[in-house]
């Protein structure tokens, strides 16, 4: 799956779920936790979405800011996971 598609999906999900407006664009590199777009509980919503959308499972130790804190980081991480399946 190409990165652009993942990026678009993730970006749209975040706009719709946390900004309540699918047309709102978020800078792909900003910190989602740091800017308050998502709070620590909201991350769970994001994770459930990604797990069901891409049929993958995240391990506890993978749930760190390095993998989930921006659209860019999420895209890179999913893409890597999909390659390893």
């Amino acid at each position: 799956m190409v990165d652009d598609e993942i990026r678009n999906n993730v970006s749209q999900f975040i706009s719709k779920t946390f900004l309540f407006d699918p047309n709102k664009k978020i800078d792909e590199e900003i910190s989602l936790l740091g800017t308050g777009v998502i709070d620590s509980t909201g991350v769970l919503e994001l994770i459930s979405y990604l797990e069901s959308k891409y049929q993958i499972k995240f391990e506890d130790e993978e749930l760190i800011g390095e993998n989930f804190d921006s659209i860019e980081k999420i895209t890179g991480f999913i893409s890597k996971k999909l390659l390893n399946i």
Binding site: L33, S40, G65, F68
Partner: peptide, 13 residues
């Protein structure tokens, strides 16, 4: 339990 890692990320900010 799952959210703990991200919670800690939050406190680190």
């Amino acid at each position: 339990q799952q959210s703990k890692g991200m919670a800690i990320e939050f406190w680190k900010r």
